[in-house]
Design a protein around this nucleic acid. Structure first.
Lengths: 257, 257
DNA sequence: ACAAAAGTGTTTAAGTTACACCCATGT
DNA sequence: ACATGGGTGTAACTTAAACACTTTTGT
């Protein structure tokens, strides 16, 4: 009501916002879903875990900022990071989400295959993979890092939204291959679904479903077989050109929320 | 790489952004999908159609700003507008999207029943419903307003994204009822799908599908019947408590993009 | 020999599609 | 009478779910 369009867009008057990106980077490791987190070194929320992220620079888009941060935090080369799956999740703009000033954050979700521990320059030094949420049917034995109780700022909300979004997208897109290395077995692909959804899937049916979807995966020709530990060697596949699943691969129990 | 976390968050240094909201408000009218647009009165893009929207005020969240703008542009009371379906779409942050300054815009999608022409105070004076995109199987006869060729800024992109999102959400959520008045017939509900998707659906099958989904619609008890013009009077329904569709109501031809 | 995982086959239920047909109302 | 849209029924087809069974490896 009391709003009026500014004539000249005085940046002093209409630019009271800082814009950041936050990254929810997922991977599947040892049958559990992991998230890349950083430990905050300063107030507020010093010592708490937080999603990696940073400021959007004046000359770049939010997506460019997110991809830059992703490369920094994962310690990968820009070339490698450029191929990773990055997707805008939502924007969080609660006026009180950062006590210091007005910060609007554009959250992105990234899916990466099981990478080596983040190392390298920049902020990567303190970035770490921590398990998150519903784990698959067979959690890794032995002691594992506990998922942190409460993240800094509203990052718990962002992370929950990201997990829900990823789970939903697995149903009707070919996104699951983004969790896998360039060549993978159908067992590895199935484990992605089982880990993110926290369910067990029928192996034969899963196989048929995937192979029946035209461009989901392409068989690697060679004499291609490989062992994933014990058991019969499995054929290798690559991600296909398809991007959507028709019909979708619905998760059991019919739950979406 | 050259980024560093600011110690004290100097707003002068880290607040070079203005944040706005843009609204893609859809309705179904006369069997065609319509969008609420405003005509720009000043440069840049003076005279072009644009999505309604405005600045996020310092004390409000983006969603609050969107809801406020929605009430203003539709000319509805705040109470009525509070019940409308509003959903965050995405954030558009290309550095060059506004030639005057750096503006990051959070886009929202709203679905409303066929409302009277927008009237009332504020910016509503120049807001208008214009047809958009794929129309249903039976376009309204007679001359209608042409959909504008090119919107201002990147609003064509936003509008296309919004349409795609709405179409996709109809498949696996109960969203379609947001296009309908409080009490509606199954024919009206079906017309929503047909209009947004631009297809014709089999009436008997659509009916069964909707009624078989537990909380999608609830029959209105009374002696409730009503005429939608010609033909047999139809039973009335209200939106049910369900929010997701299981299994989904897939559109024919299996196209999603 | 046994466990584990891949891969194939089959049976049964469930859901979808495409119709034919009757009902109630306006013109 | 006829057109129009609501509502019911049904058979053919397609898809999904459950489970038995064989193959190939490591221990």
């Amino acid at each position: 009501m009391q709003v009026q369009q500014p004539e000249g867009y005085d940046p002093r008057a209409f630019a009271p916002f800082a814009v950041t990106v936050d990254l929810a980077v997922f991977t599947v490791r040892d049958g559990r879903l992991h998230v890349l987190l950083v430990r905050r070194g300063q107030e507020p929320h010093a010592g708490r875990w937080a999603l990696p992220g940073g400021f959007v620079l004046p000359h770049e888009s939010a997506e460019q900022a997110a991809r830059r941060e992703l490369a920094e935090e994962t310690g990968l080369s820009d070339a490698t990071a450029a191929g990773l799956h990055l997707e805008q999740l939502a924007t969080y703009s609660d006026p009180d989400r950062d006590p210091r000033m007005r910060v609007v954050s554009v959250a992105y979700t990234a899916l990466v295959p099981d990478l080596p521990e983040p190392r390298g320059g920049g902020d990567a030094a303190h970035a770490q993979w921590l398990p998150h949420g519903a784990h698959g049917p067979s959690p890794a034995p032995g002691p594992v890092d506990r998922p942190p109780a409460a993240l800094a700022f509203d990052h718990d909300t962002i992370l929950a939204d990201a997990h829900r979004r990823v789970g939903a997208k697995l149903e009707y897109t070919c996104l699951a291959t983004a969790f896998c290395p360039p060549e993978f077995t159908l067992g590895e692909l199935r484990q992605v679904y089982e880990t993110v959804w926290g369910v067990t899937l029928d192996r034969p049916n899963f196989r048929r479903k995937v192979l029946a979807t035209p461009g989901f995966v392409r068989a690697v020709d060679g004499p291609p077989r490989l062992t994933g530990g014990r058991g019969k060697p499995a054929a290798l596949y690559r991600a296909g050109p398809a991007t959507v699943l028709h019909p979708p691969l619905l998760r059991p129990e019919g739950r979406t929320g």
